[in-house]
């Protein structure tokens, strides 16, 4: 369970140590302050300070096991579901500590899309309508479903088969359905954990186009192992790395052109050029 002691702690702005000038934004939608995450006795992520600016795409890069997924799972309290996970430090969503917000509301405002498409074993329509229904919305469901599917660039392909089971869709379509399902509750942030790693190049391209389109109204944090994808879709990129003790740290954060064009940290350079990882 999340460390309940955090609830009563005051927000220590002085603890935010900018990795570089780009890591300080005026009104970040998400913020991690001195974040440490451990699973049981094993420290997985250490001293992460990062701000996520509104309506931008931020990519998290780094070798496997460096704590990228752990970090984004903290943003919407997904790590609460892991019994042995222990979190210290603060996660702020629009300046509010996420531990002060009901977990269901956090996940309503901060949606998540996973590596493997995970539609519910229901119809396409029911998948998209599920979130609004759970949140007590009974009216305009047809409109919400249509708008969400259109935003996810899936409407044209499924408008005549909304009652069919979502499992009948291709992998790329299922992933766009999962994005539509996330969009149906009108989130402010979408966290994406390697959303294209199980998709073919054309489906990947459509998801990337979608990310770029959505970023005008939604903040997106994407974990990716595909460097070119990070360059194509993101505005800022954060590189994480685990040292010999296997503890993940944020080593560099900056504009995507700088991170992939001329990284300042030698480890980032080695990672993005494929020399480590």
């Amino acid at each position: 369970m999340i460390n309940q002691n955090l609830k009563n702690k005051k927000i220590r702005k002085d603890l935010i140590k900018p990795v570089n000038k780009y890591s300080i934004f005026e009104n970040p939608v998400l913020e991690a302050i001195n974040l440490n995450v451990s699973y049981g006795k094993v420290l997985a992520v250490k001293d992460v300070n990062i701000q996520v600016p509104k309506n931008k795409v931020i990519s998290l890069i780094g070798p496997s096991g460096c704590g990228k997924s752990t970090l984004i799972r903290c943003f919407n309290r997904m790590n609460d579901t892991i019994r042995i996970a222990n979190i210290s430090g603060q996660i702020l969503y629009n300046k509010r500590n996420v531990t002060d917000i009901d977990p269901a509301e956090v996940r309503y405002r901060i949606g998540m899309v996973f590596q493997k498409p995970n539609p519910f074993p229901k119809s396409i329509y029911e998948n998209v309508a599920f979130g609004p229904k759970v949140n007590g919305i009974k009216e305009n469901l047809d409109q919400i479903v249509e708008t969400s599917l259109k935003k996810a660039d899936l409407w044209k392909e499924v408008k005549d088969r909304l009652k069919e089971n979502a499992y009948g869709l291709s992998g790329g379509q299922q992933q766009r359905l999962c994005i539509a399902r996330t969009l149906a509750v009108n989130p402010e942030v979408i966290l994406m954990d390697e959303p294209c790693s199980a998709l073919d190049p054309i489906s990947t391209d459509r998801i990337e186009e979608l990310i770029k389109d959505l970023s005008s109204s939604v903040t997106i944090v994407i974990v990716t192992h595909n460097m070119q994808q990070a360059v194509r879709v993101s505005d800022y990129s954060a590189c994480m790395m685990a040292g010999e003790e296997r503890i993940g740290e944020l080593i560099e954060y900056g504009e995507v052109d700088q991170i992939f064009g001329n990284p300042k940290d030698k480890r980032t350079e080695e990672y993005v050029t494929g020399r480590i990882g």
Binding site: M227, Q228, V231, F260, G261, N262, P263, T268, E269, V272, T273
Partner: peptide, 9 residues
């Protein structure tokens, strides 16, 4: 090879 950073430069 889709190089990046110093390789691309």
């Amino acid at each position: 090879e889709t190089p990046l950073a110093s390789d691309m430069r």
